[in-house]
């Protein structure tokens, strides 16, 4: 059971949280302008790395707020958590850079 630090409430058990998958996805401003393939990419294509991953969690049984985390999907080590309105920490930036490069 992971121990995850909610940016507002502090460290809590994983059972208090909901999971939201990849973070920093941007909803297209004008979906009508996208072709089906581009729209499908937004809907369904997600980064799925083995290793550090920038992802979303929600403190469902706590403050009910969403936040972002950097976690190693191989070891389950939670490297950092941060609020959505915060500048991503270095650990997140590195991963995000790599993810974009991989596309």
């Amino acid at each position: 059971m992971l121990r995850i630090s909610c940016p507002w409430c502090g460290p809590r058990d994983e059972t208090e949280f909901g999971y939201g998958g990849q973070a920093h996805l941007k909803r297209p401003d004008n979906p009508e302008a996208l072709d089906d393939a581009a729209w499908a990419e937004f809907l369904f294509l997600r980064d799925n790395p083995e290793g550090p991953f920038v992802e979303r969690w929600v403190h469902s049984h706590g403050c009910r707020r969403w936040f972002n985390a950097v976690r190693d999907t191989k070891t389950d080590r939670v490297i950092a958590t941060y609020r959505p309105d915060e500048t991503p920490p270095e650990a997140a930036k590195m991963v995000l850079k790599g993810q974009e490069g991989g596309r």
């Binding site: 059971m1 992971l2 994983e14 059972t15 909901g18 999971y19 998958g21 799925n48 083995e50 991953f53 992802e55 976690r71 999907t73 191989k74 070891t75 389950d76």
Partner: peptide, 13 residues
Amino acid sequence: DRRNGYGQRGSFP
């Protein structure tokens, strides 16, 4: 386990 994970291990709950 709802989180992404490659560790071949989940959580006890």
